[in-house]
Structures are given as C-alpha cells and as structure tokens.
Nucleic acid binder design. Structure first.
Length: 420
DNA sequence: TCTGGGGTCCTAGGACCC
DNA sequence: TCTGGGGTCCTAGGACCC
C-alpha cells in the first residue's frame, strides 16, 4: 500500500502558521512578480477565485471581499516543507519527496502490523501539532489511486483528512465519482479528447481497451490506466535523482531595453544556476540563454531568441558560466525592443567527478574551485549575494515585484516571531 | 502599469553507422 | 514484383506534473 501525504493549500497554510489572524479568512498567495494567484485558502476558493487568476484583474474584487494577499515567500515555504518531511520520516523509512508539499510513503509490510487508517490519522495529527500545517492522506494499492484517495480526503470532511481505498468495491465506487480531468497523469489535452468521446469519469477510462489507450496515449497513458485498475506500475523514487537541466528565469518588474541592465539580470540568473549545480555536485557542458519581449503586449514589436553556448569543459564555476552566458546574450541581444523576461538553463549536466577533460584546454581551474568554495561558504552563512560578482549589479532596474511579502519567520534572525 | 517558474518523459523522424 | 538488416544518436514537439 502507498500513502500520499499532501499539505492543504500549502503556501497559504505556511503564512497562517505565523499569523493567526488569517485563520478562517480568505487568503491567497501570488506568483513571482505578483502576477497571478497560485495558492488559495478554502475561503478564497469559495469566493470563486481561480487558480492562476491574474492579480491585476481581480485586485478590486479582492479588496471588496477583504482577501488577504501575499507575495510568494519561497524561503519560508521551503523551510516549512523540510519540517513537515522531517516529521514524516519518523513514521516510514521509504519516502519519496514528490514536490514541495507532497510525499509518497511506501507502506509495504505495514498492513499486518498497523491499522493504516489509524496510523495515518496519527501522522496527520503529529504534523499539525508539530508544524501547524494541516495535511490530507490518501492510502491505496497504487500511487495513482493514492492520489485519488487523497482528493477524497480533502474534499469530504467526513473522512477526517484520511481516506483509504483497500477493496475492489471502494476502488470502483471512488473512480465512478472521480472526474477524468482530475486523474494524476491526465492533463488538459487528454481530458478534452476523452470527454468528447463520452469518457467522463476515471471509471469510464478504466473501461477502455488497453490497446486503444496504449496507441493513443503511449505507455504513459497505459501506465495510468493500469494503476487505476489497481496494478502498481509507478515505482517509488526514494532517492532524488540529480537534475538533468537546471533553469533560472524571471519576468522583470519593468520592461528593460538596454544591454547593461539585461546583462545584470542574466549574470544573476547564471550565478543562481551555478550555485544549484554546485549544490548537487554537478557541472554543465552547455548553457542556454534566452530573452523575450512581452508577448501579451500585441501593440509592441516582438522578439524572442535563445542560444546554446557550448563549454570546452563542463563547469560549475560562477565566473566561467557568467562569461559564456554574457557572450551568448551579446549575440542574441538586439537594440530597440522592450524585454520582459530572460533566463539561463544549464544543460548536459554530469557529476563533478565525471567531467570529461579537453585535450586542447590549458586553463588551470584550481584557484577558481577554491574561490567558489569561499563564495558558497560566505553566502550560506550570511545570506545570498553577500559576496557576488560586480557584473551582477544591484538589481534596481529589473528586480521582480513583491509588494506583499511576509517576513522570513524561520530563516532570518531579525524576522523571528516574538512574543510580547 | 499589470499576465509565474521549473521540471520530466515519450515518440517520430532524420541522419548516420556497419 | 522487386530494392538487407540492425542499430545509435539527435532534435523537435507534445504531453504531463507541481
């Protein structure tokens, strides 16, 4: 049996832990740049605020209904996520960190020793008490069915946050009440196609022929079909595989025209990519740089280019990667456009220890390696960008907007909550 | 004025190899 | 009517996830 533990309205719940006045009130968290709603409390959902709703379009509505608004505070959410996962690990040895707010637990062998429903209720209570975050738990014989059970646990208060699918009868009953579009692995495209064919529920889907599903939805769709029928096909990934690509991209707070400002932003994104590479002890052999104008502004001339820079030897040095990124930027930059977004992606990533040397490369990188070590040590201790490269500038001209940012309650000394 | 960011996997088709 | 057999690698595009 598998369990899926999912934090309820996670980002909103994180904000609520440290500000009890938000309890029972409609609350939303916005995306980067305060662009759109990416998390909503139940009260906000009840008001009809949609996932992804543009902030500037609903701003007046939010004010009228006294909705509390927050900019995204990833530092806080990431730290709260660690706390939740730390508690989870006390209950089960085989855990897959699936996302910032979801974990799969492998309960193989547990059934004979525990009443799974009681056990998961205990998990939910412990997490709520230990972190303040409410969670829901779905338990079933496959991961896809555990996802289904989890939605039931969330949706119907009768389950008291824990839903178990452990019989044929319950499985069929659940799938008959489950919209096809809500199934894990069935996205918008497949939903449209299936609905047009009259396949409306997850149960309808399991009644289709295996060969048809395989042919039209590939092995991926077939896996979902089998999982829904109770056959486990998707394995647990208890060890996080290294990233194959690492991307940092942002929309700017304002539109940017000049090369200097653009290069500051690209240098910053590259520094973030390099730091992430070093964290997973990897190097990248190529780097993609892209710049875009604002494609929502149909009244303005549009321009969008990307370039892949190949490095002679895979690297994770901020200095070296910035050099290549800026060289790439120089070749795609064109004067006369208002840019809205830029990004940098590390590709052809390999482990640091497996880097292929280049016969014609004569640069000694040992000093660079030590420099990066110092840079990481200083920045880990005193905060990001305490030590940085001059080309990164101060960000004044391009930084994202975050007008409703909450304090870093758990990670910044000066922001710690104080009792009076 | 304003419209998020970061990933993975699979398939088809072309180019190339012996 | 017929035009070998068996592979690899790469890319673009499509689908999905949070």
């Amino acid at each position: 049996m598998y369990a899926l533990v999912d934090c309820n309205n996670f980002f909103v719940s994180c904000e609520r832990v440290f500000d009890s006045r938000l309890e029972g009130k409609p609350v939303i968290v916005l995306s980067n740049n305060d662009g759109c709603a990416i998390a909503r409390s139940n009260e906000a959902k009840a008001l009809g605020i949609k996932m992804g709703a543009n902030y500037f379009e609903i701003e007046q509505f939010l004010k009228r209904h006294n909705v509390q608004v927050f900019s995204t505070n990833f530092v806080l959410y990431a730290d709260m996520s660690l706390r939740v996962k730390g508690l989870l690990s006390k209950f089960c040895p085989d855990i897959e960190d699936y996302s910032i707010d979801e974990s799969f637990l492998d309960f193989s062998g547990f059934e004979t020793h525990f009443n799974l429903k009681d056990y998961c209720t205990k998990i939910a209570n412990t997490i709520k008490q230990g972190t303040g975050i409410p969670v829901s738990v779905g338990i079933a014989p496959t991961k896809t069915l555990a996802k289904v059970a989890n939605k039931f646990a969330k949706k119907y208060s009768g389950y008291k946050s824990v839903c178990l699918i452990d019989s044929e009868e319950k499985r069929i009953k659940a799938l008959q009440k489950f919209d096809i579009g809500d199934v894990w692995g069935i996205g918008r495209r497949h939903t449209k196609r299936l609905t047009e064919m009259g396949v409306k529920t997850a149960y309808d889907f399991t009644c289709l022929s295996q060969s048809w599903v395989r042919k039209t939805m590939t092995v991926v769709g077939e896996r979902t079909w089998r999982e829904l029928r109770g056959e486990p096909c998707i394995k647990m990934e208890t060890i996080q595989p290294d990233k194959q690509t690492i991307m940092v991209s942002r929309s700017f707070g304002k539109m940017v025209e000049d090369y200097e400002t653009l290069s500051e932003a690209v240098a910053n994104y590259t520094a973030m990519v390099a730091a992430k590479l070093r964290t997973q002890k990897s190097c990248a052999a190529s780097l993609l740089v892209f710049i875009d104008t604002n494609y929502f502004r149909e009244d303005l001339p549009q321009y969008s280019r990307h370039i892949v820079m190949n490095l002679p030897v895979a690297s994770n040095s901020t200095a070296e990667l910035i050099r290549y990124a800026l060289e790439g930027l120089r070749s795609v930059y064109k004067k006369g456009y208002k840019y809205k977004k830029a990004g940098v992606m590390a590709m052809e990533i390999c482990a640091q220890k497996d880097v292929q040397q280049n016969l014609f490369d004569t640069i000694d990188r040992s000093a660079d390696k030590r420099l990066m070590q110092v840079l990481d040590d200083v920045n880990n201790k005193y905060g990001r960008n305490t030590l940085k490269f001059a080309v990164m500038g101060d960000g004044k001209a391009w930084k994202i907007r975050q007008e409703h940012l909450s304090p870093c309650y758990t990670t910044r000394m000066s922001d710690f909550p104080k009792t009076v």
